[in-house]
Amino acid sequence: MDFLGLIVKYPANRRLNEQERAHHLKQKQRLGVEPHYQLSVIKMNSTYLESVDKWFAWKGMISALAIILLAIFASTLGLISLRWLLEAAGDSSEDSGFLLANGLGMACVFACLALALIWLLRKESFAYTHYPMRFNRKTRMVHVFRPNGTVLSMPWDQLYFTLGHMAQWNDWEVRGHVLDADQATVRESFALSYVGSLNPGDEHDFVRAHWEFVRRYMEDGPQSVSGQVQFCMPIDVRRETFKVGMERVFANIASAPFLLYYLLFPLCLVVSLFRCIAINTSKIPQWPAEVEAASAMTPGDPYAMEGDTTGARVAVFPEAASAAGVAFSAPPRAVR
């Protein structure tokens, strides 16, 4: 539930720090973890893998916070300021100026808070439904759809991947840095889809396992990871349904202990409701023509997959997939 990079930009024009050097993830180096797709896949084929952004899992949280706070401030500060203004209008004593000043001051405070909350709301609603990342293994390019609607395109082999730490939540993520010619100055950063705890050597080492999923796709091909993909997010050319969005939000707590699950149930329900608002007020992102042209899918590709309207994985070319024996086989195995 981290929104670094969406609300506040990643620090840029700075030197790589020691932590980033110590946790460097190399494109050619296989880690001792089983790859894990973490419900990130939108589409996958022999040409490219397209995944969701790291904010997608909890989309709706920002909108819920902004709209609920906006409603609270509107009902309290608005009524108080209106009351003072009305009292000032009907009061001919010397207190009327004081009441008028208080009413106008309260109205200004409300206006500033409202503008701040609207700014926050627009980071998620009235924006884009998601911010996809496309990993093209044939051109060896990575394309990242930025929150401002532009696209970052960089060679896979020139990106510096490392583990990034969000100290306030003690969460980690895999970040890709665009470095300057000196190979030490960070110009821009983005993150892969999964955010969570760092558990080296544990069966829940999902942060590095998700990196390994992307890395093996790019280095070893779709056959190395396609069997574990059971669901593909059905958001490429359409908005998700309320049911699919709700299932995605509740998937965040699917493995929580029984008591914690039911404590978080109301939160997830609220987020699901506001996720619907965020999705339906936002635009579906469109890749530039040159990115689409470089991502042409091979006809009859047995590894081509996408999601149906429910999110279930389906083959784009079912006959080719069946002939090659390509299908969902099993979820990712735990690390031993």
Rank of each mutant, 00 (worst) to 15 (best):
L179F: 09
L179P: 04
L179H: 07
L179D: 12
D180M: 01
D180I: 02
D180C: 08
A181Y: 10
D182G: 10
Q183V: 03
Q183S: 12
Q183L: 02
T185P: 11
V186D: 02
V186W: 00
R187Q: 11
E188N: 13
S189M: 07
F190I: 15
S193Y: 06
S197G: 09
S197N: 04
S197P: 01
L198Y: 09
L198D: 12
L198M: 07
N199F: 02
P200E: 14
P200D: 14
P200M: 12
G201C: 13
D202Q: 11
E203K: 15
E203Q: 13
E203Y: 11
H204P: 02
F206R: 14
V207C: 01
V207T: 11
V207N: 01
R208W: 04
R208N: 02
A209W: 05
A209T: 05
W211L: 08
W211D: 03
E212F: 01
F213E: 05
R215L: 11
R215G: 09
R215I: 12
R216H: 00
R216T: 07
Y217L: 03
Y217K: 07
Y217S: 09
E219W: 04
G221Q: 01
P222A: 05
P222V: 08
Q223W: 02
Q223N: 03
S224Y: 12
V225R: 10
V225F: 10
S226E: 15
S226T: 14
G227M: 03
G227S: 10
Q228L: 08
Q228N: 14
V229Y: 01
V229G: 10
Q230L: 12
C232R: 04
M233C: 06
M233K: 06
I235R: 02
D236T: 11
R238P: 00
R239C: 12
R239K: 15
E240R: 14
E240Q: 15
F242R: 07
F242C: 05
K243I: 13
V244G: 00
V244M: 07
G245T: 04
M246W: 04
M246I: 01
M246N: 05
M246T: 13
